[in-house]
């Protein structure tokens, strides 16, 4: 809660923008560079904002990208079940409260946490496989 209590408005706006850009890419049917996405969107968002949102969506594994010229061209991930799964997990639903109602088995580890965890479980454990 503490982690999410700041800037709820901004987060929601980002979620809307992400959905908007996803829609543009899905309609286009062909990979688009950030410049082309900006053209499709009209003058709503700046180039750098679009680049930020596209790379965020790529990090969330919602987009694939291929190098084209000096930029990347982005397209939505092909697998529909995967997309449905990610929607289920709430990554498209940017409401900060969504995470609070899901009790996740394990949350993210910092690198210090990871080191500590390996130390706790002992060196003989091949946990990573």
């Amino acid at each position: 809660m503490v982690a999410n209590s700041h800037e709820p408005g901004r987060r929601r706006a980002n979620g809307e923008r992400e959905a908007e850009i996803l829609a543009v890419l899905q309609e286009a049917g062909t990979p688009l560079t950030p410049g082309e996405v900006v053209e499709h969107l009209g003058d709503d968002l700046t180039y750098s904002t679009v680049v930020t949102i596209l790379s965020r969506l790529h990090t969330k594994q919602l987009l694939t990208r291929t190098p084209r010229g000096r930029a990347y061209a982005y397209s939505p991930v092909a697998d529909e079940p995967g997309l449905a799964a990610r929607r289920m997990r709430g990554v498209l639903d940017e409401r900060p409260d969504r995470e609070a109602v899901l009790t996740r088995f394990v949350d993210g580890l910092s690198s210090a946490d990871e080191e500590l965890l390996r130390h706790l479980l002992g060196p003989e454990q091949d946990l990573d496989r």
Partner: peptide
């Protein structure tokens, strides 16, 4: 159970999400 939690966490190994406040 401890090893299961650890194994799952290392498999997920997402970027740290903890806020500086916490």
């Amino acid at each position: 159970v401890a090893r299961t939690v650890g194994k799952a966490a290392l498999a997920v190994r997402r970027t740290p999400a903890r806020s500086p406040v916490l």
